[in-house]
Structures are given as C-alpha cells and as structure tokens.
Simulated assay, not measured.
Amino acid sequence: MKIKNIYLVLCLLGIIIPYASFIPWMMENGLNVPLFLNQIASSPVASFGWLDVIVSEVALFVFIYSDSQKRKVQYWRLTIIGTLTVGVSLGLPLYLYLREISKNE
C-alpha cells in the first residue's frame, strides 16, 4: 500500500474514532457548551489531555504553515479547518496526504 493511501486511511480513522465518542455525547447533551467545558476540566487528567491537544494543535499549525510554504502544498488551509473541527487526528494525516500528492504533481 502506498504511503498516501495510508494517510487517507488515517484521515478516516481520525474522523471516525473521535466522533464515535463525541456524537453520542452530543445526542445526549446537545450543544451544551458549559457542560462540555465543565467535563473537560473535571479532573487534572482530563485537563492534561486537553492542554496536550491544544499545544499539539498550535505546533501542527506552525508546522503546516511553514512546511506548506516551502513545499508549495496546495489546499493546506483545509488541514486547519479539519484540525479545528475534528482534531489533530484528522489535521496531521490530511496534511501529510496533501504533501504526498503535491510531490507527485
């Protein structure tokens, strides 16, 4: 299997796995932002996880912007949208996929 196809599979998993937990929560609680934020900070371990994700997202954004300018990766902005709407689990493999296909053009 080619690496670009592996990145595509990781994109799909990066959407399916996080949303498999989030969608049932949303169906039960709706768009209850105060409850969501309360549960994010409900324990030091939960806060640790979310703070780790935030730092990872910022690092990913810096990497994507810098690398996409050097390598002339098209559609890199989609990875920012993917990261903000799903997470690093989509943004990173999506960027790596776009980078791979830009090498082949």
Rank of each mutant, 00 (worst) to 15 (best):
V73A: 06
D52R: 06
V88R: 08
G30S: 08
P24R: 09
I54V: 14
Y7W: 14
Y65M: 11
F22H: 06
L78D: 05
L37C: 13
V33E: 05
V45L: 10
L90D: 00
L35H: 12
S42L: 05
Y65D: 09
I16V: 15
K103N: 14
S66M: 10
I6G: 03
V9W: 05
V53I: 15
W76E: 10
V88I: 15
V33M: 13
L10Q: 04
S42Q: 13
R77V: 05
Q39G: 04
F61P: 03
F63L: 04
K70Y: 10
S47F: 12
D52G: 11
R77M: 09
T79D: 00
M27Q: 12
L31Q: 08
V9G: 05
V62L: 12
S68T: 09
I3S: 05
F36Q: 04
L90E: 02
W50Y: 15
K103F: 06
I101T: 08
S66K: 13
S102T: 12
Q74I: 04
L13D: 10
Q69R: 11
E57C: 14
N5A: 05
K4P: 01
G87T: 00
G49E: 02
E100Y: 00
W50I: 02
I6P: 00
I16R: 04
L10N: 02
Q74T: 06
I6K: 07
M26V: 13
L78C: 09
G91V: 00
A41K: 10
V73W: 04
F63Q: 04
E105C: 05
I81W: 10
I40Q: 04
Y75G: 06
N32I: 14
L51A: 12
W25P: 07
N38L: 09
V33C: 03
I40E: 01
M27D: 12
P34G: 06
T85A: 07
L13H: 07
I6A: 09
I23W: 04
N104E: 14
G82V: 01
K70E: 13
K72W: 08
S66E: 08
S43N: 07
V86H: 12
D67E: 11
V86L: 06
G91F: 00
N38F: 14
P93Q: 06
F48V: 12
M1W: 01
S102W: 03
Y19I: 01
Y97S: 03
